[in-house]
Amino acid sequence: MKYFVDGSFGSRTALLSEPYEDDTNNYGCQNLSDEEIYNIIEKSLKNDIPIAVHIIGDLAMKKFLDIYERVYKIYPNNKVRNRVEHIQIIKEEDIERFKRLNLIASFQPIFNLESNLTLTRLGFRRIRDTYRYRTFIDKGITTIFNSDTPFGAEYVQKKDGTFLKALNQCLVYTVRLIN
């Protein structure tokens, strides 16, 4: 099952700890209540049923990890490996908690192509907390990549006039980043 904790940068609905740079009264939104998140995590850990959660904003991640830690203490010996999708912005202190909770980081390299949008939404100061693939890998966190298709499947025109799925270009860029 995949659950949506928050929204996206594009619609300014990813839940942030500080307002959007280009919409200073907006912090985004939380799609599931804290109680719903708790119940989802508890069912997963209690019954060894893997889940995936969509989290883009840093406040959504903090809230999720806060709740996950509480439930994890009740079921510390569970065998399930839960996955967090996107992780487009995360504070440094939450990366260590992510690792301690044995979560899988699932990134979508295609969103590197939206760097102008990300910069517009977050500003220069917060950009260092985005797309932290290398940090996760260096810290030994299980890290996977996927396409997020159909959302990230745009075509770009090459110099020769033919078209290339942007995902291919982005994967090459990501391999350079992590190597």
Rank of each mutant, 00 (worst) to 15 (best):
N82I: 04
E93W: 04
E93N: 12
I95K: 00
F111T: 00
N112L: 13
V84L: 15
N116R: 08
S115P: 04
T120F: 05
F107Q: 00
R83G: 07
F124K: 13
I95N: 01
E114G: 15
I110Y: 11
E93I: 10
R121W: 05
L113D: 10
N116G: 13
V84T: 02
V84W: 01
Q108W: 04
S106Q: 09
L101T: 09
E93G: 15
I90E: 00
K91C: 10
E92K: 06
I104E: 10
P109R: 00
F107N: 01
F98S: 07
P109V: 09
E114I: 03
F98N: 01
Q108N: 14
T120N: 15
L101H: 07
T118Q: 05
I104N: 07
F98K: 00
K99L: 12
P109Y: 02
K99A: 12
E114C: 08
I87S: 03
P109H: 02
L117E: 01
I95E: 01
T118K: 13
H86G: 11
P109L: 06
R121I: 03
I104K: 04
L122R: 01
F107S: 02
T120S: 15
L101Q: 11
N102K: 15
K91M: 14
G123Q: 07
N102A: 09
E114M: 07
I87H: 00
G123D: 03
V84C: 10
T118R: 10
E93M: 11
I104Y: 03
D94G: 12
E114N: 12
A105S: 10
L103C: 14
T118P: 11
P109I: 02
R83T: 11
I89H: 06
E85T: 06
A105I: 02
L119P: 09
E92S: 09
L117M: 14
L103F: 06
E85S: 08
F111E: 00
I87C: 08
N112T: 08
P109T: 05
N82Q: 08
I104R: 02
E93S: 15
S106Y: 05
E85F: 04
H86S: 10
R97E: 08
H86Q: 06
A105R: 00
I104G: 11
R83F: 06
R100N: 15
L119E: 05
I104Q: 04
L119D: 02
I87K: 00
Q88F: 06
N112H: 13
N112P: 05
E85K: 07
V84Q: 01
R121H: 10
S106F: 04
K91T: 08
R100M: 11
L113H: 09
I89G: 11
I95V: 15
E114A: 13
S106T: 07
S106W: 02
R100S: 14
N112Q: 12
F107H: 14
Q108F: 11
E85Y: 05
L122T: 01
F124G: 14
N116Q: 12
T118W: 06
T120W: 08
E92A: 08
R97N: 14
R100V: 08
K99E: 04
